[in-house]
């Protein structure tokens, strides 16, 4: 059974239909990506999963319906989203941001161990743990946002354009880390404009266009698809 199962998901903002009935699923242990051009409806889809915008359709996580639940209740069920633009708390320190990631947890020892692990994963954060997060560079903020989401030990981690606005070297670093997180058993759904990168690291992919899913399949196959190559890989 899939960890996440979405059927006929629709999202609209007033008269604007951003997502027009899409089906997708993510199985436990997978790294799936969702690619598409600007305005395709990718962020809306992720926001819908977390209950930040309302949707219609059937959305199941571990078999349980998510529709109608408040965001904090969905997070409590094991979903985490690193939003577009990272959403770090600029006036909280790096350490406090990580603590916020573990907000719903009560196991002090486990939290402590995970904090140590987060600093191992991102040594730059360790050096800056007492610094206000607003003073971090864009790349460091992205690291913090991912580390913070991991602090909640989500069973499914959603990343919205983790490479946005970052220099190539930092993009590589972030993606190496994402691959590592996936290897350690975290299930991931990654939204990305950079189709090249996304198809390289993921096992499966969905291609979204104007609110619908145009194509889907194994990433290596999609990477060779002439349509994809023309539209997203710049061939």
């Amino acid at each position: 059974m899939s960890l996440l199962m979405a059927q006929g998901i629709k999202i609209s903002y007033g008269g604007i239909h951003a997502v027009r009935g899409i089906d997708f699923e993510v199985a436990k242990g997978e790294l799936v990506c969702l690619i598409g051009a600007n305005g395709a409806g990718k962020s809306s889809t992720l926001k819908g999963l977390l209950g930040l915008v309302s949707h219609s359709g059937d959305l199941r996580f571990n078999g349980e319906r998510l529709t109608g639940l408040a965001t904090h209740a969905i997070v409590a069920r094991g979903l985490a989203l690193v939003p577009e633009g990272r959403g770090i708390f600029g006036r909280l320190t790096v350490a406090e941001n990580l603590d916020m990631g573990a907000y719903l947890r009560r196991d002090r020892d486990g939290i402590k161990a995970d904090r140590t692990r987060a600093y191992e994963l991102f040594p730059r954060l360790a050096e800056r743990n007492k610094q206000l997060a607003g003073t971090l560079s864009g790349g460091e903020q992205q690291m913090l946002a991912i580390a913070r989401a991991l602090m909640g030990r989500p069973s499914l981690l959603l990343l919205d354009e983790p490479s946005m606005g970052l220099a190539p070297l930092m993009v590589r670093k972030i993606y190496e880390t994402i691959a590592r997180i996936a290897q350690e058993g975290v299930t991931l759904l990654v939204v990305e404009q950079n189709a090249h990168l996304a198809l390289q690291i993921s096992q499966r992919a969905y291609v979204m266009e104007s609110g619908v899913i145009r194509l889907s399949g194994p990433s290596h196959a999609l990477a060779r698809d002439p349509q994809i190559r023309a539209a997203y890989l710049g061939d």
Binding site: P83, F89, Y103, L104, G152
Partner: peptide
């Protein structure tokens, strides 16, 4: 305190605070 941290986080962004599991 945990509540205080949640208050400060909520003051900065209600949406992101919810994403942390805070009942805003």
């Amino acid at each position: 305190t945990r509540l205080g941290r949640a208050m400060r986080a909520t003051a900065q962004s209600r949406e992101v605070a919810e994403l942390m599991g805070v009942n805003v």
